[in-house]
Design a protein around this nucleic acid. Structure first.
Lengths: 339, 339
DNA sequence: ACCCTTCGTCGAAGCGCTTCGAAAGTCCTG
DNA sequence: CAGGACTTTCGAAGCGCTTCGACGAAGGGT
């Protein structure tokens, strides 16, 4: 192994000088710096991470904590993770992947052993058991999602309230007056995952505000139950012409169920989904949708974390604006509608 | 921060004694051990990871390297990742997530800086640029997937050859004689990702061996192109009654396209897929399938890695046997078939 | 010519841990 | 009861790095 002493000897300087060249914490003359850098290159020197973290109290590693319930939609989780890693690297940090199945102890361990400098919590729930722990740990942290009491915590997420509203506004602009929301499974609402509720609130608020009729119902993920939900909705509320779907897993089944009911999309019924682009583009017709900007959320959370590590004060809540992409599943309501 | 010296003082022993209690590398009397352990608990001591890695040359961290092309199916990747983390924890190791977008340098960096003891490479391709680097690094490693020249490398994967064969055998056992394989997109075959080719080889070998007719064609992932492929297949080869699908992303579209052609599954056509269970269970009818045992592969790779870290010799190739689950998409060929 | 800065570099201490050799204590054996 | 063989614990060195104080050399003002 090549050590800083080897580099120093090769360059004819003191080890501390090499350290200062690398960290830039003191001025080093240009000629010396060049000599040191070239020695580093020649010898293929890489600082020993452990030694560095021992001496400097900084590991340059952040923890990325996966949610407790892996019921969460995996591809989106993965997109988050990739964005977090990529962004962290831009700040010269690495990422330690921590699962919650050790319980909160895993978090405590990586923090207390000085393995990580800071923490990103993914897919935070309203009553997340990891959150109290986070408060007692002294490490900077950022949450993706919102817990019940986010005071003093830094949280990042898509603005689901706005997302729900954006869907309503889009449908309203096309002339639709009778809207429905097919949301997450009932269990998700009960569990109190914030995003489902916030979407529903945004949906209801917007329909109210615009003087439209809006029905919000939960929706399971399994094909047959989806069919049942759709059946119930369409028979009880045949007047509905605009449908908002906030349930990635059920999207495909819902489209099938609508077809089975003889409702053509978008001719008879316009559909807007809140889901990743890839899901929206894999249906027939493609879905107008509000995407979950996983990359943006991941990148933003790391950026905030780095600012906190630098001692900056950052805003408590960062809500990323929804972006609605119009595709093939929404169309204007025909002028003469039976009503 | 609580250090080993604090613990030693509290327990009335030398720091080295505490260290030996923790590592078990020397015998410590039961009474002393109890005293030390209780001090550790009382003080809430966690060893400093950096100091430990500096002194012992072991970081107890392994690198998990994501594939270069994130085109790979993300949920499966995530399942791998979770399994790797969970298993690593059982061996008291943590996992550093490394993306390949820094190029091979990222790998070199984490290895050379002693940040990780060993490396797991996910989704290895036939001509993977990371593989030569792995050979020059001295760290133990395990690959998930097979490169073109796996000599001397430890590789783990589903046995795709057997998987292709298993699908054929299942269909054959139901009396089907004319089979087809809808595989990965052409680009995947060209790129040389081993698993696609191995499945095809297994499929063709088995049809050959059993004296069946077998047609293997590639298949894109987009809905309209899938429809075109299915159309071509069914019109050119109307005799086909058994279909093997090895393309997760296209599964749903294929089912739709078959229906559009008036082919009922499984009445007119039996379908077996090679895909994760969740995909197989979300179609109508549910799909008989060979699953990609992501958890098993992830766990197995870590287990092998740990054995290598302990200096054991492990087998070069670990092929996990396919397991076929019969669901609703396969049925016996009616005795009298127009042929 | 002198003192006072400023700049660039060096040397040494110390981060918290592991590990090796040795010391102290215990127990047999002859 | 001396001497060997263990057992259990200690002390100190050292892992590779950062950082702080200090020092010599230049430069500026008087």
């Amino acid at each position: 192994m090549v050590t800083i002493t080897d580099v120093a000897r090769h360059a004819g300087v003191a080890p501390s000088t090499v350290s200062y060249v690398l960290s830039g914490k003191r001025a080093i003359s240009s000629t010396t710096r060049q000599r040191v850098l070239s020695s580093i290159r020649v010898l293929g020197y890489h600082p020993h991470a452990g030694a560095r973290s021992l001496a400097s109290n900084r590991s340059n590693v952040i923890a990325l904590v996966l949610p407790l319930r892996s019921g969460m939609h995996l591809p989106v989780l993965m997109q988050f993770a990739i964005a977090v890693v990529t962004t962290a690297r831009q700040y010269d940090h690495d990422v330690l992947l921590v699962t919650a199945d050790e319980g909160p102890d895993g978090l405590r361990r990586v923090a207390a052993s000085a393995m990580v400098d800071a923490i990103v919590l993914m897919d935070v729930e309203l009553n997340d058991t990891r959150v109290p722990l986070l408060r007692e740990l002294d490490r900077p942290s950022v949450l993706i999602g919102f817990p019940a009491e986010p005071d003093g915590l830094t949280c990042v997420d898509l603005d689901f309230f706005q997302a729900g509203a954006a869907c309503v506004e889009h449908l309203a602009s096309l002339g639709h007056k009778d809207l429905a929301l097919l949301g997450a499974p009932p269990a998700v609402y009960e569990r109190g995952t914030g995003f489902a509720q916030r979407t529903r609130a945004g949906f209801l608020d917007a329909t109210d505000r615009l003087g439209l009729s809006g029905i919000a119902i939960a929706c399971e993920e399994e094909t047959d139950q989806v069919a049942a939900s759709v059946h119930t909705l369409l028979t009880r509320h045949p007047e509905v012409t605009g449908l908002v779907v906030h349930n990635e897993a059920a999207v495909a089944s819902i489209m099938v169920a609508l077809a089975a009911h003889g409702r053509r999309v978008p001719d008879d019924l316009s559909v807007v989904a809140i889901c990743p682009d890839e899901v929206a583009e894999r249906t027939e017709p493609t879905l107008s949708s509000v995407l979950i900007p996983a990359e943006e959320v991941g990148a933003q959370s790391v950026t905030l974390l780095m600012r906190k590590l630098d001692g900056e004060i950052v805003p408590d809540a960062s809500l990323l604006a929804p972006r609605l992409t119009v595709r093939g599943s929404t169309a204007a309501l025909p002028a003469a509608h039976g009503g």
